[in-house]
Structure formats: C-alpha cells, structure tokens
Amino acid sequence: MERVPILKIGDILLVSIQVDMSDQTALQLQEDLAERIVSTGSHGVIIDITALDIVDSFVGRMLSTIASISKVLDAETVVVGMRPAVAITLVELGLSLNGIRTALNVERGMELIAAARPDESPDDDEFHDETDEPETTDSA
C-alpha cells in the first residue's frame, strides 16, 4: 500500500497528496498525521490537494476528520489547492466540508495559519503550550 509523505516545514506539517488514494491509504494518512502532530508539536497542518482530480465522500470525510483531530491536538488544518471542477462536484454531491478551513494555495494557507495564531512564534510556544493565558501559567 502506498503511503502519503508528511513533510515538516518549520512549525507546519505539509501533506501534498500526489496519488489517487485508496481508502486504506486515506485512513493510513489520517493515523500518520495524528502521530506526527503530537511527535513534532506542530500547530499547523496544510493539506495540498492540487493534484487530486476528484474528492469523493470518503476523502471528504477524511479531510473533515483530520481537521477535527488536529483541532483536538491544538493544530490548525487548512486544505489548499482544490480544483474548480472538484469544488463544483462536491457542491453537487452535497458535501460541504464543514469545519474545514480552505485556501487557494500553499502560500495563502500558511498566511491563514499564521493569522490564526498571531501571539505565538514557533520558538516560545513550548513554554505555555497548555494554555493560551500566561497568567494561569504564572500562578500554576
């Protein structure tokens, strides 16, 4: 079975799906990604689907699940590069990908992640990764 590679770029994990995934490959990616988010402590995940010529309900559900899992693990997920034909088909299919943030390309996706965490730089987040409020950290 093929495995989709996950790249770490700075504070962000980049997944560029280049193959026509079987359902097993999709589920594997979901698992791999959850592990990598924890092991790298990344706060952002970009899933680049520029190369995908279709997204069916299974892949759609995988994207939603990844977004939910990463949210629980304190990481922001952005799906980037969806082709127009794919978007039109998804609308017709009735899949709205609720809860998923999207951007036109990787660059915009990175901006989106940076904007979502304006107060954190990659260097200091390990000092208060339990909570966003410094006061609580101080009193603890």
Binding site: A87, S96, T102, R108
Partner: peptide, 12 residues
C-alpha cells in the same frame, strides 16, 4: 449560491 459554496471550498 452553489458558486459561492464552491468558491468557499476552494478558499475564496
């Protein structure tokens, strides 16, 4: 409406 939803899916 469909156009708007499709554009959102693409990040616009």
């Amino acid at each position: 409406l469909k156009t708007v939803v499709a554009a959102r899916l693409m990040g616009a």
